[in-house]
Design a binder for these strands. Structure first.
Length: 473
RNA sequence: GGCCCCGUCGUCCAGUGGUCUAGGACGCCGGCCUUUCAAGCCGGAAACGCCAGUUCGAACCUGGUCGGGGCUGCCA
């Protein structure tokens, strides 16, 4: 069988990572089976759909490397792939369903419907138990699907196994609005059928809607897809992610300097695992191993700390030159200005030690900020803890003397000079070097000292030491 | 309320009746290394929600219970 799967986001807001994970799993499934991955845009809700959101969705998927074989922008033989371009088709399907008796017009008022719901509540029945085809036929209003009351709907979910719904709990749901637009259920089901989707892999929030989609599929006709419902992804507070809660935008992660390959790796671990003990693996390995039956049934919490660790792993694994290239735009935007070629040379010199301690690119700029400013910002807690101690001015003074006479100012000579300072003052490295670190970088946390000083250069280093001597008084 | 799904360390996963005194990863704690912070290495605390049942034997099977989540819209 030729696998055809789709991701069908609705451009009514930012894509949260739950949808992104669903996209990733669909994509991995398609690639594993040499199938087709389709990007469809579910914009039946015209009121709330916006082009800007659609653009962001596509940008995000491209960034993550989730390339689609068919769909918006790339086309395909089953197009169009945007629901707003398929309105005629939905209308046609609705007319067929009404004609064949599978659906009916309903012009009952909201009040009427509400009282039916209340009646059901009172009798402890499904709220929509009484919302069925009324005796009085209508020719306008919404169109409802007529749910056959003699059978239950059961299906084999690829992740959850057998799931069964009694038909009495499936209401006669609306498939066509009175304003002439299809609802999600109709549009999505029609599309899946028309696009010959073989596997519908989506969030668990749609599990309860699945019997409706199955019934609709049967009424419309065509090959029913298999269903697989992914567990939801929760925020740090254990509440499900939504368009206004938790990590919502892929753009945010990209801007902070997460690597798409790391993000993919982390996301693949949310509800799936490649085996018992590996957590870092390539996308190719994931694709080769991916199987829906290995997807977990329980919800997963999105853990930023683990993502950051994962990203650090990938950053450290980068060749130095690639690290420099990829971190570059983040350094620029972090600093708020371009660097000249001398400054880039300095940055490159520091790169290896920066790369080691970078969790995401945007925090790299901060590490080297002291190199590219004449006004060092002294971190107050650092100053208080390190500089307001006995003997600090001696350390700074002697260091200045030793550094001032150096001809070469490379790592080794700086180290030798400062070691001799330590000896002269009979002070340990731990105590004796911290004041220099604060004086030169502004903080008690920084890249390694000898590198920092040698890259900063003699003049600027001596200036900073002198400034601190003065400030201490 | 009704229906559906889910329930292993704080978090993400492994585990599919005996090899589990439950394994890995992140995080956390301690140590080593050490010029800080990272990284690395070593060690540690930390979980089968609960109750029955099936069985010689249950994290794994069944029932119940409790807890979490979803759906219950002319949103998707």
């Amino acid at each position: 069988m030729n696998v055809r799967v789709r991701i069908a986001p609705s451009p009514t807001g930012l894509v949260h990572v739950g949808n992104v994970r669903a996209a990733l799993f669909n994509w991995m499934f398609a690639r594993h089976h040499d199938g087709v991955f389709i990007l469809r845009i579910d914009d039946t809700d015209r009121e709330r759909s916006e082009q800007q959101y659609e653009d962001e969705i596509k940008e995000g998927f491209r960034w993550l490397g989730l390339d689609w074989d068919e769909g918006v922008d790339v086309g395909g033989e089953y197009g169009p792939y945007r629901q707003s371009d398929r309105m005629d088709r939905y209308r046609e399907v609705v007319e067929q369903l009404v004609e064949s008796g599978h659906a009916y017009y309903d012009d009952r008022s909201t009040e009427e419907l509400e009282s039916l719901r209340q009646k059901a509540q009172k009798e402890k029945l499904h709220p929509n138990f009484f919302i069925r085809r009324p005796a009085r036929a209508a020719t306008a209003g919404v169109v409802r699907f007529s749910v056959p009351q003699d059978a239950s709907v059961e299906f084999e979910d690829a992740i959850r196994g057998e799931v069964r719904f009694g038909s009495e709990v499936i209401d006669d749901f609306v498939i066509y609005r009175s304003n002439g637009t299809p609802t999600y259920h109709l549009a999505s089901t029609t599309d899946d059928l028309d696009h010959a989707i073989t596997h519908v892999i989506r969030g668990e929030d749609l599990l309860s809607s699945t019997p409706k989609h199955i019934l609709l599929s049967r009424a419309i006709g065509g090959a029913e897809p298999r269903y697989a419902h992914l567990p939801l992804i929760m925020g740090p507070d254990g509440k499900p992610l939504s368009k206004r809660h938790g990590p919502t935008s892929l753009k945010e992660f990209r801007d902070r300097g997460f690597l798409p390959e790391a993000f993919r790796n982390y996301l693949s671990l949310l509800g799936w695992s490649i085996d018992g003990d590996r957590t870092v693996f390539t996308t190719e390995e994931a694709v080769a191993a991916f199987d829906l039956s290995d997807v977990s049934k329980n919800p997963a919490v999105f853990d930023t700390a683990k993502l950051e660790w994962m990203n650090g792993e990938y950053i450290r694994a980068l060749p130095e030159s690639e690290f420099i290239e990829r971190v570059r735009p983040h350094v620029v935007s972090g600093l708020g200005r371009e660097l000249d070629s001398d400054e880039w040379a300095q940055f490159s010199e520091m790169a290896p030690v920066v790369q080691e301690r970078t969790k995401f690119f945007s925090d790299a700029g901060q590490q080297v900020g002291f190199l590219f400013t004449d006004e060092v910002i002294y971190d107050e807690p650092s100053w208080a803890k390190v500089m307001e101690k006995e003997g600090v001015s001696d350390v700074l003074r002697v260091s200045s003397e030793k550094l001032a006479v150096l001809d070469r100012f490379d790592h080794d000579s700086v180290e030798a000079a400062l070691r001799s300072m330590l000896e002269e003052l009979e002070i340990g490295a731990r105590k004796g070097l911290q004041p220099l670190r604060v004086a030169v970088t502004g903080s008690q946390v920084s890249p390694p000292l000898f590198e920092s000083i040698s890259v900063l250069g003699k003049d600027r280093t001596l200036n900073r030491l002198a400034y601190c001597v003065e400030r201490i008084g």
